[in-house]
């Protein structure tokens, strides 16, 4: 039976993709819609190959991916220590929580004009947007995990005479990890969306820029290539992330939907 299940897993998405492309071609043939509105699959493929050969696609992907990576890591580097401080210092939490909650309600892209004013239109502003977008999922995921830590495990540390800091680092944070990981996955997706949004407005490279530029040149085929690449990269990065988690922390269940998560 397991082989049949594996076969299904590979085949179903493939069939869906083929059916989608067939419907797309058929739709164009039947309606005769103009190339500028909806280019054919082959036209999109041609545009994609052109971009790959010219090295342009690779350049845009590299720029976008690097921005995402830096912004994501920066948000983790901020969110984890602040969550840990919140867990230890009630006073700090009381002071910082209201402004953070306020900031959380504001979509990162709404902060764009301010960030452009303060940070210019260079890399700092783009990385800033991504950091903003990634911060809250990681932060709230970790705080939630900390709050749910099993008291009985904490008692193990208390009996062993561990300090409060050691209990936090050796018991509370690891036990919060599954919740942190959920936050990290959400953050990756949010960061990716915010990035493309940021690149649409003020930039000279990156996938968002590529789409924006193609729109100005009425190159709908390139726009579609951009959309497909963005979706694919988002899926691929989430997949890679899940694999990395499964390899590093096998006890963290990341593959929901198997009935055991």
């Amino acid at each position: 039976m397991p082989t049949r299940v594996a076969w299904h897993r590979a085949a179903v998405p493939l069939i869906v993709a083929v059916a989608f492309i067939a419907a797309w071609s058929l739709g164009i043939a039947l309606t005769g819609v103009s190339r500028a509105l909806l280019p054919s699959p082959t036209a999109v493929l041609g545009a994609g190959l052109e971009l790959v050969e010219g090295g342009e696609l690779a350049r845009h992907v590299r720029v976008s991916a690097l921005r995402l990576l830096i912004g994501f890591l920066l948000s983790v580097a901020l969110a984890l220590p602040i969550a840990m401080l919140f867990a230890r210092l009630r006073g700090l939490r009381a002071v910082l929580e209201p402004p953070l909650e306020f900031l959380r309600q504001v979509p990162p892209l709404a902060m764009m004009p301010l960030l452009i004013l303060w940070l210019g239109i260079g890399e700092a502003q783009k990385v800033g947007i991504i950091t903003l977008a990634c911060f809250f999922p990681v932060f709230l995921g970790t705080l939630g995990g900390i709050a749910q830590c099993d008291r009985r495990l904490i008692e193990v540390g208390q009996v062993a005479g561990l300090s409060k800091g050691a209990i936090l680092c050796r018991i509370v944070m690891p036990s919060a990890l599954p919740s942190t990981v959920v936050g990290l996955r959400i953050a990756l997706g949010q960061g990716w969306r915010a990035l493309v949004g940021a690149e649409l407005v003020a930039s000279s490279a990156g996938l968002g820029y590529m789409i924006e530029d193609a729109q100005n040149l009425a190159r709908t085929d390139i726009v579609i290539v951009g959309v497909l690449v963005i979706g694919t990269l988002g899926l691929a990065s989430d997949w890679a992330f899940r694999r990395a988690i499964a390899a590093t922390w096998p006890w963290v269940k990341v593959d929901g939907g198997d009935g055991d998560a």
Partner: peptide, 26 residues
């Protein structure tokens, strides 16, 4: 130095058996 064997095992799910056993010594 107190050693407490709780009524339930209370193991750290993220640590191997060996690291659970050595937890208080680390």
């Amino acid at each position: 130095r107190v050693g407490y064997v709780f009524q339930e095992p209370r193991l750290m799910p993220w640590l191997s058996v060996a690291r659970n056993v050595g937890f208080n010594l680390e």
